[in-house]
Amino acid sequence: MLQIKNLEVEVENKKIINSLNLSVGKGEFHMIMGPNGSGKSTLALTLMGHPNYKITNGKIEFDGRVINDIPVDERARMGIFLAFQHPEDIEGVKIIDYLRLLLEKVKSIEPAKALQIIPSKAREVWFSADMLSRYINVGFSGGERKRFEILQALLIKPKLLILDEPDSGVDIDSLSLISHKIRELYEQGTSILLITHYGRILEHVDPKIVRVHIMKDGHIVMSGKEELVEKIEKEGFKKVFEECGCNE
């Protein structure tokens, strides 16, 4: 489904990602871990097509099509969804108006139908009717922001869901709910690419299905299974990198 080959990415003329290879098949669950600044968000934003992130080498293929030059909205309509690490505030735009438009334009669901679907999905992530008439992300707590990203993913049901630290800045109850919803999407057939610092987000996910990749300086230095998560949580990146000789 997703194939990243020999990818090299620059931001403001600075090379952030280099010779990165990764392949995510249909119905697979991948996890990326790595220290701050290792390029995880850069990778996520590049996959989504952010104009500031320039691909200087390599290619990204999705469903057999090279998408290097395909604009963000078209990638979204092809089935890629990015739950942002820092979702944007959009002043004045009510959630309900936005979600209705989204379902109409992207999923061809007529507004009357959308008005039934949205509140019931919203309740699943603890968004009340009042919450739906607030402006997008304006004044939201950390947990609300991340749950709103999940709500949109639940409504859109993407083929590939990239989650950039869905667990950072959220309270313990939100974390558990988000973990639950990631599993739900996974079970419906969505492929998952989860960027995180903590194994906790796997609370409701069967750890056996997860493939783990460790990123360092814009590069995947190690891949493995669930044991890798435990090892990193116990020993920290520094020690793991020393052991593997990843530091040169």
Partner: peptide, 13 residues
């Protein structure tokens, strides 16, 4: 640009 990107990343033109 960031708010435009946010909305477009969900599939809006």
């Amino acid at each position: 640009e960031e708010e435009l990107f946010y909305l477009m990343s969900r599939g809006l033109k």
